[in-house]
């Protein structure tokens, strides 16, 4: 079940490499890598289709939502809604309905849907791709195991973070916070001793410390945000591939590969949901932190 029907014997390295390479299209029409000017068609198409499917499905329910006795689909959507709303309510204490809560809903549902693509057997996806696009067609089904996706989300949140920081505190307030928190601003007083004079001369270093701290924070936030999701999904995908290779190694391998694959899938349900939830929570936390002044 594991390998594509190719003429030569597929080595494990080739198998993994095939499953780990993107359907890359250069903007100039080359199918090979064109550096930055490349688009991963598989990542983009899968994620956009999933995003549209999820948001349209929920929109169709939301459009007809009424206050009376809800239908089953409305009850389900309301369940998701209340879940997200409660999480956001606990973290963010402003008007969450204006932006943060709906953004959290989008992030959660979209990431969940993208993560859930990991449940599709990798070889089936590759099989369909090779049927449609020839033997060497590639299609990675999990958009969140593409670092471009997770970075795109994390950087969007990062930009929103800075945007809300400036919106709430003003540009001056934001700059002030960059240099004067978390260690506080130096106070300039006329020195009364030599030690005081040294302290006064050294005090601008506090700006530097604050700034360095904030820069590190601003760099680490999107990194941890995106790499956590990417790492989890990438690792999950790799394990599925290894199990697929195990399954190709004879009857015993097929049996145990299937059993282990089922086990990993079941465990992966937890990871998929948990990572989507964590990603959503971090988005909310970062955005609400941007609203708070120090």
């Amino acid at each position: 079940m594991a390998t594509n029907q190719e003429n030569h014997e597929l080595t494990p390295t080739e198998y993994i490499q095939h499953h780990l390479s993107f359907n890359a299209q250069g903007v100039n029409g080359n199918t090979t890598n064109e550096g930055f000017w490349t688009i991963h068609v598989d990542t983009l198409a899968t994620s956009v289709v999933l995003g549209l499917l999820v948001m349209l499905a929920i929109w169709l329910v939301a459009r007809k939502a009424h206050a009376g006795v809800p239908t089953k689909s409305q009850a389900f959507v309301e369940l998701v809604f209340s879940f997200i709303d409660n999480q956001v309510k606990n973290i963010f204490h402003g008007n969450r309905h204006a932006f943060i809560a709906p953004a959290a809903l989008t992030v959660f549902l979209w990431v969940l849907a993208m993560n859930a693509m990991d449940f599709l057997p990798v070889d089936w996806v590759a099989g369909v791709a090779s049927l449609l696009g020839g033997e060497h067609a590639k299609w990675r089904p999990v958009p969140t195991s593409d670092i471009n996706t997770t970075f795109a989300l994390a950087l969007s949140v990062w930009i929103l973070m800075i945007f809300f920081s400036i919106k709430v505190k003003g540009f001056g307030g934001w700059i002030h916070e960059l240099f004067c928190s978390p260690f506080g601003a130096p106070s300039f007083k006329v020195p009364k001793s030599i030690g005081g004079l040294i302290a006064l001369l050294a005090s601008p270093l506090l700006f530097l410390a604050n700034f360095a701290f904030n820069i590190i924070e601003y760099i680490s936030k999107p990194l941890s945000h995106s790499l956590r999701l990417f790492g989890n999904m990438y690792a999950g995908e790799i394990i599925f591939m290894l199990l697929g290779m195990f399954a190709a190694s004879g009857i015993a391998g097929t049996v145990f590969g299937a059993i282990l694959g089922a086990g990993w899938s079941i465990f992966h349900i937890l990871i998929v949901a948990l990572q989507a939830f964590i990603f959503m929570m971090m988005t909310v936390v970062y955005l609400s932190m941007a609203h708070e002044s120090h």
């Binding site: 929109w59 939301a62 809604f81 709906p102 809903l105 979209w110 795109a152 969007s156």
Partner: peptide
């Protein structure tokens, strides 16, 4: 490798958020 996909995904993300903010969240 980081490439144009990132930008495209960010745009998709922005559109999805806008859609949710405008059409999904308020009626619910």
């Amino acid at each position: 490798n980081i490439n144009l996909t990132l930008v495209a995904q960010a745009i998709a993300f922005a559109i999805l958020i806008w859609f949710t903010v405008k059409y999904v969240w308020p009626p619910l």
